[in-house]
Amino acid sequence: MNTLLKVLRIVGYLEGLSYSLLLFVAVPVKYILNDPQYVKLLGMPHGLLFVAYVVIAILIGLELKWSKKTMAFVLLAAVIPFGTFIADKKYFKLA
């Protein structure tokens, strides 16, 4: 389980980074400069990292018997900007 938790931490970091870049760099460039290239470039990797984060978080949550509140927060963290960084600090370092 320790290895899977390390993978979750890495995927969570990358997912949070890709989401932040997508939201705060690529989308403004798309609408301000009318250049959708960065959204196309970052969209697919972010989507794959998002799915990987959710699947791994569910697997670890079931294994560690997280409460519904903890599981909800960890999963919700994937859709909140910088949420995966908070989840990492609050839950993943402790496990």
Rank of each mutant, 00 (worst) to 15 (best):
Y53S: 09
L59K: 10
Y38M: 13
S67D: 14
V74Y: 09
I58D: 08
M44N: 01
S18Q: 06
V7I: 15
I10K: 02
D35T: 04
I10E: 04
A26R: 00
Y38T: 00
N34T: 01
T70R: 14
V25F: 10
V51L: 15
L5A: 12
P45I: 06
A72W: 10
L33Y: 08
V54R: 05
V74P: 07
L62D: 12
L59D: 07
Y19C: 03
V51R: 01
V74F: 09
V25M: 10
K40I: 03
L59R: 10
P36S: 01
I58V: 15
W66E: 13
I10T: 10
L42D: 02
L64F: 13
T70L: 09
A26S: 05
G47K: 03
H46W: 05
S18M: 06
A78V: 08
Y13D: 03
V74K: 08
L17C: 06
L8H: 09
L17I: 13
G43I: 03
A26V: 03
G12P: 08
W66N: 13
K65S: 15
V29D: 02
L41S: 00
V51C: 08
L75I: 15
Y38V: 01
Y31A: 01
F50L: 14
L59N: 09
L64R: 14
Q37K: 05
G43H: 02
I32K: 00
P28V: 02
L22Q: 06
A26C: 04
Y53K: 10
I56N: 07
S67Q: 12
L59Y: 12
S67E: 13
A72H: 06
L33W: 08
L33M: 07
A78M: 08
V55S: 07
P28K: 00
G47Q: 07
I56Y: 07
Y13M: 13
L14M: 12
Y31D: 01
Y38W: 13
K65W: 09
K69M: 12
S20F: 14
P36A: 02
Y38R: 03
L75Y: 10
D35E: 12
